[in-house]
C-alpha cells in the first residue's frame, strides 16, 4: 500500500513481515473421536505488497489458514503474527479487510450504505463515510450504482461492492476467500483483471484463496500449493511474469509454463 493511503497499521520496521506463520497446527474437534487435522506444521512468511495465493484441492486447509490469519479461527498450536501482532490484536486494530466467497451484502442497505458498514462500525463521521464510499465505488467503477440495492446487481457487480467495502477503511492487508469462485469463467477473468487494477491503484498485501490454478498464477507474485489430509504446504512457487498483467498475459508461453509448474507440484503432492 502506498504511504498516502496507508491505514497506519504498518510498523516503521521495513523488515517487518505482514504475516508470519510458525509451526502452526489446527485440529478440529480435537480430543474427540472425530478429530480432523486441518493444518499441520504450517510455516509461511508474507511481506509487504506481496500478492500471495493459497491453492489446493478441497480440504487442504487453505480457507482455514486464511481464517487463522483473520482471527476468525484460533490455531491449536504454533505462532501467528499479523503486522508483528497476535491476530486477535490485529483484528481489533482493523488491520485487514476480508472478502468472502459470497458477497455478503445486506439487502436492507443500498450499495453505498453497504460500503459504509465497516466505517460506521469504526466510528467514522457520516461525511467521511459518504466520501470514502464514493471514492471506493469509483475505484471498482460502480459509482453509478451507489443508490441501488444489492439484489439489483449482477453477481460480479456484487462482488465488486464487497471488495469496495473491504477496502473502505484502507487496510494494508486484504484477505480474499475464493471471492470469484461463484462466478462464471468470463466474469471471473474480467474480475481478475479488475482486481489487479484495484491492487495497482490501492497497493497493499493480498492473500487470495482459490481453487483455480490459472487464476492463482495470473494474479500472484507467489503461489502456495497445499494438499489435504493433513492440510500442509507442499510447495511455494514464485511467479515472475511481468506486470502489469492483462489478457495477453494469459496467452504468454511463460504463463502456461508457470501454470504447468504449479499443476506439477500439486500432482507430486498426490503422488500421481
Amino acid at each position: 500500500m502506498d504511504t498516502s493511503t496507508s491505514g497506519g497499521s504498518q510498523t516503521s520496521n521495513p523488515d517487518q513481515k505482514v504475516v508470519s506463520i510458525k509451526n502452526v497446527h489446527k485440529v478440529f474437534n480435537s480430543g474427540s473421536g472425530d478429530a480432523v487435522v486441518a493444518l499441520q506444521d504450517i510455516n509461511l512468511e508474507i511481506g509487504a505488497n506481496e500478492f500471495v495465493s493459497l491453492t489446493g484441492p478441497s480440504g487442504c486447509g487453505k480457507s482455514t489458514l486464511l481464517r487463522l490469519i483473520a482471527d476468525l479461527l484460533q490455531p491449536t498450536a504454533g505462532q501467528l503474527l499479523v503486522n508483528g501482532k497476535p491476530p486477535h490484536q490485529a483484528r481489533q486494530d482493523r488491520d485487514y479487510g476480508f472478502v468472502f466467497q459470497a458477497a455478503t451484502l445486506y439487502d436492507w442497505r443500498s450499495v453505498s450504505q453497504n460500503v459504509q458498514l465497516p466505517l460506521e462500525i469504526m466510528g467514522y463521521s457520516p461525511r467521511e463515510r459518504a466520501e470514502r464510499a464514493r471514492a471506493m465505488l469509483k475505484l471498482v467503477e460502480l459509482e453509478k450504482f451507489a443508490d441501488h440495492h444489492p439484489w439489483q446487481l449482477s453477481g460480479g457487480m456484487q462482488q465488486r461492492v464487497a471488495i469496495a467495502r473491504a477496502l473502505a477503511f484502507e487496510p494494508a492487508l486484504l484477505l480474499m476467500d475464493e471471492p470469484f469462485g461463484a462466478l462464471d469463467e468470463f466474469t471471473r477473468e474480467r474480475m481478475n483483471m479488475e482486481l489487479l487494477n484495484i491492487w495497482g491503484k490501492a497497493g497493499g498485501t493480498i492473500i487470495f484463496v482459490t481453487h483455480s490454478i490459472p487464476e492463482a498464477v495470473f494474479l500472484s507474485s507467489r503461489v502456495v500449493v497445499m494438499s489435504p489430509r493433513p492440510g500442509r504446504i507442499t510447495k511455494v512457487t514464485n511467479i515472475d511474469l511481468p506486470r502489469p498483467r492483462n489478457f495477453e498475459t494469459r496467452e504468454d508461453p511463460r504463463f502456461f509454463a508457470a501454470v504447468t509448474e504449479v499443476r506439477e507440484s500439486l500432482r507430486e503432492a498426490y503422488g500421481v
Binding site: L72, R91, R94, Q101, T104, Y106, L117, I121
Partner: peptide, 10 residues
C-alpha cells in the same frame, strides 16, 4: 459469513 464479516470488523 455475515456474522464472520462483522467479527472481522471487530
Amino acid at each position: 459469513s455475515a456474522l464472520e464479516m462483522m467479527r472481522s470488523y471487530a
